[in-house]
Design a protein around this nucleic acid. Structure first.
Lengths: 140, 140
DNA sequence: ACTTAGCACTTGCATTTTGCAAGTAACGTA
DNA sequence: TACGTTACTTGCAAAATGCAAGTGCTAAGT
């Protein structure tokens, strides 16, 4: 795994150093919206991430504090990944990205009602989603 | 230049296919906040993008509709890059990223007053900035 | 106890992308 | 007409990615 080195003190650059690639945010998305939380789950997503890249990104994201992992209680083989406070705080960014994409992608897969909810009630939506994720990911 | 191929109909994936790399958003940032608008300007940024990558990204971003270019009126050598409606619509995303980075980066370079303005008056800030950029980039 | 299956990775290798240094072509200025 | 500026291109080494196959551990069935 390569070393993370900071390119500048710019906030945009800081963020890109953490999730500025084609895969990291998709893993976060799966954890946020798709109820996925295992290696095998992430592999099944539509974008077809390859196994080595997934393993690398999971390690990276855990290092950078965006995810945490634990072994399943019943099943010791199963490794469960969860969001952290730091990644749950990405919700507003994700929501804005969804809204932007809905605007410029005529074939967006985002549900109409969700886009409408963003448009009409963004702040509450963010609050609700954030609260829900904190509970379901054990972030107290 | 490589072909852009869509990985899925997911809005996050759609966005990442357009600006999901370490450099594109830095160029957008320079256009939004640093009053930079030429190849030479972008080269001078702190992150030290290399010349071939910059040339590639400028072509890509123009292809994808995030920037447009024109020759300077007085000087025909000088090529001026400007934001488009599509990239100005990224303002909310950028603002959220800045806020997130300020929260998790103890050494963020973002000015305190700007962060405070985001915290206390985000919607107006976005409106103002968007309006300003539309005018200064000739987006009617 | 032995086999089989599932899960989470690792490894090897070809392809692609990036980074760095140097070079080029067009225009502008003196 | 020479020289600097601007916007790139090119060549090549290094790093990241993609794909196929393999490994090691656990669990479950017989």
């Amino acid at each position: 795994m390569k070393e993370v080195k900071r390119r500048s003190d710019c906030p945009i650059s800081f963020a890109l150093d953490i999730f500025g690639d084609k895969w990291s945010l998709l893993i976060i998305r799966d954890l946020m919206f798709q109820q996925k939380q295992t290696y095998g789950d992430f592999l099944k997503s539509d974008e077809k991430i390859s196994t080595n890249i997934l393993a690398d990104r999971l390690t990276m994201l855990e290092h950078k504090g965006l995810i945490k992992s634990e072994r399943g209680e019943a099943n010791n083989t199963r490794k469960i990944y969860k969001l952290t406070d730091k990644s749950i705080a990405l919700v507003p960014i994700i929501i804005e990205i969804v809204q932007w994409s809905a605007l410029y992608d005529p074939n967006t897969g985002a549900p109409k009602e969700f886009i409408e909810r963003i448009r009409s009630d963004k702040d509450n939506l963010i609050r609700e989603l954030t609260g829900f994720l904190k509970i379901s990911n054990g972030v107290v």
